[in-house]
Nucleic acid binder design. Sequence first.
DNA 1: GCAACTTTGTGCCTCCCTTCACAAAGTCGT
DNA 2: ACGACTTTGTGAAGGGAGGCACAAAGTTGC
Lengths: 206, 206
Amino acid sequence: MARLPGYLRALTALADAGIASVSSEELAGAAGVSSAMLRKDLSHLGSYGVRGVGYDVERLASEIAAALGLTQDWPVAIVGMGNLGRALAAYRGFAERGFRVIALLDRDPRVVGEEVSGRVVRPMADLTTLVRDEGLSVGVIATASDGAQDACDALVAAGIRSVLNFAPVLLSVPEDVAVRTVDLSTELQILAFHGQRNAVAEAVAP
Amino acid sequence: MARLPGYLRALTALADAGIASVSSEELAGAAGVSSAMLRKDLSHLGSYGVRGVGYDVERLASEIAAALGLTQDWPVAIVGMGNLGRALAAYRGFAERGFRVIALLDRDPRVVGEEVSGRVVRPMADLTTLVRDEGLSVGVIATASDGAQDACDALVAAGIRSVLNFAPVLLSVPEDVAVRTVDLSTELQILAFHGQRNAVAEAVAP
DNA sequence: GCAACTTTGTGCCTCCCTTCACAAAGTCGT
DNA sequence: ACGACTTTGTGAAGGGAGGCACAAAGTTGC
């Protein structure tokens, strides 16, 4: 369910605003989906709503968090200390949502040992230890395109089965490994496509 | 068609490797889709393939680029010079794919005037001028969550209709404005979900 | 020039996701 | 305690995207 994080985000905002109960209509609006879809999604988790009243914000938030597996922690390592890697290392968004970045790695011996955002960059060979001793379970690939598959292979070999990839390449992995790719250029190209459609529509009907 | 950028990426790689012609089977493999789907997608653009031979790599690449609107340029501005904004400003991935970052902006007067990655940070009020005189057409929101809607409103008011949003919020915009949201935490949460499913599956059948 | 082979383009079918609509269930006022 | 009202949960309908399979078309070898 790719929409659960969106619901959780909306619920957290409501809880911060001190709201204790919410109807499917309101929550759906806050999450940007239809109320029927929201109810169907939530019904798959179990019946946590009360008819005539709505959903208990705190209760539902913790049920969703549990369904997403956020009750345990998922230590993260970032591979590749180029521009993007350093940026991600400095980014606080991970920690704010409960993902601890426990290591920064690079394959270049000249970068290993350098300090980035208060952490010492470690060699790729440390991966096995990190997985075994520190429970490392998520790898973030922030290398250049040509190093991404190697980085991915190293992560998989060390036992990691969740990979977040920022390189604009198609990674090949065993089927029990989950990969999510975030490609900024692809996003911009999709926006360009929409922009062009707008321009064409405008030319036809000014 | 959200898959066109993927095809274009694969075609560019093939062209760099000196390959002039490709079958739907091969290209589909390189882009990570089925051959039937690839052919159906391409047939919507027009018939650029030759039966018995395949597709001309250069020709198809330029047709897709045209369909995506990449023949014209789409100047980009980045709003919000926090950690993420500075990272994106330093990132070369945009320029490599033909998107020129022409301005960096921030609403904080203490940040305006500062130099970031060789560019002077400009105030939000410059947006109108940028759109009118420099053809600015894409806005990237890299502010904190609570400033994202304001930044978005400013972009829309200046006439921008393509927005790439990195803040973990649901932006409300007029319907002729295209928004794509990239939320790193959401991606990690989805990975956590898969990771948990793996762990459960393993416990059931070790 | 013809036949065998390769590969595209596409009609049809299937399946999943979304939406609609309503009955079940629980609350609140009297 | 009861009836009117609100809101959930879900069965049924609708739509769209992906996969299958084959005919059309073009190439290549002889």
